[in-house]
């Protein structure tokens, strides 16, 4: 059973990595963003998380979450709805492979790809743009990354259960992600945004993921930066996604 799961997860990841679209959005595009933004803004400072932070120090974790969304949310919605349209789920359903392992391989593959993309961003940003990582906040950052990946994947599976077909998947994924990304502190910090906007943004999971992760990279803070309320919000959205996915998942178009 474990060997079977492992085989499906590794193959799933291999297939994802062979897919140029996923590679571009998850790995290349965020890297280009970081390089361009850092080149444009140099050592400018940004008001974020109540502090003045160097540009790359703010943007690297923010764009990292963008990467995580691309891998866990967008790619999963498109991947699952395409697989369903093409009859892959129907094929698998007629084999002895437990559906849990099959769906699990999609989700685990997406989470590992997303986390890998985030790690890659830091591997580039730390030496290239002098981004600092703190051992003190690293456990909170990693925990946020894993919970965030789980949350985005669960919502990805939920949305893929709701969309009609693969054609609908891309616009739905983008239209649910992009507007929310603008009010979640990915493109610019929420510091100084009007109160009502902050309240709206706090309703969605993305701002909590960005905040819990980004806080770990704010210089001069103390403590572990474990944000309980953000993690709770992330957990609630994960549960909501799972609930919808379990109720609405379908194997055929």
């Amino acid at each position: 059973m474990i060997a079977l799961t492992q085989q499906w997860v590794t193959t799933r990841m291999r297939l994802t990595l062979r897919n140029p679209r996923a590679l571009v959005f998850t790995f290349a595009f965020p890297l280009i963003l970081i390089v361009l933004f850092s080149a444009l803004n140099g050592n400018a400072e940004v008001d974020a998380y109540g502090e003045k932070i160097r540009f790359a120090q703010f943007y690297t974790p923010a764009i990292a979450i963008f990467s995580l969304v691309a891998a866990c949310y967008t790619s999963l919605i498109l991947g699952i709805s395409t697989a369903r349209d093409q009859g892959l789920f129907k094929r698998v359903r007629a084999t002895p492979l437990p559906m849990g392992i099959y769906l699990g391989s999609w989700v685990t593959g997406a989470m590992l790809t997303g986390i890998g993309a985030v790690v890659l961003l830091f591997v580039v940003s730390v030496p290239a743009f002098g981004v600092d990582i703190y051992a003190r906040t690293l456990p909170a950052a990693l925990l946020t990354l894993v919970l965030g990946a789980a949350c985005l994947s669960s919502l990805g599976v939920a949305v893929s259960s709701l969309v009609k077909n693969a054609e609908q998947a891309m616009p739905v994924a983008q239209l649910t992600f992009l507007p929310i990304s603008f009010i979640s502190g990915i493109w610019f910090p929420l510091d100084g945004a009007p109160d009502w906007l902050v309240k709206v943004s706090h309703f969605f999971p993305l701002s909590h993921i960005v905040n819990a992760f980004g806080s770990c990279f704010v210089p001069g803070t103390s403590g572990s930066q474990l944000h309980g309320s953000d993690l709770l919000a992330i957990a609630i959205w994960t549960a909501v996604g799972l609930f919808v996915a379990v109720r609405r998942f379908r194997f055929e178009p």
């Binding site: 297939l15 009859g87 094929r91």
Partner: peptide, 13 residues
């Protein structure tokens, strides 16, 4: 063993 018409397969596999 089920061999359906037009069942999908990952294009990259």
């Amino acid at each position: 063993g089920v061999v359906l018409q037009e069942t999908g397969l990952d294009q990259e596999i």
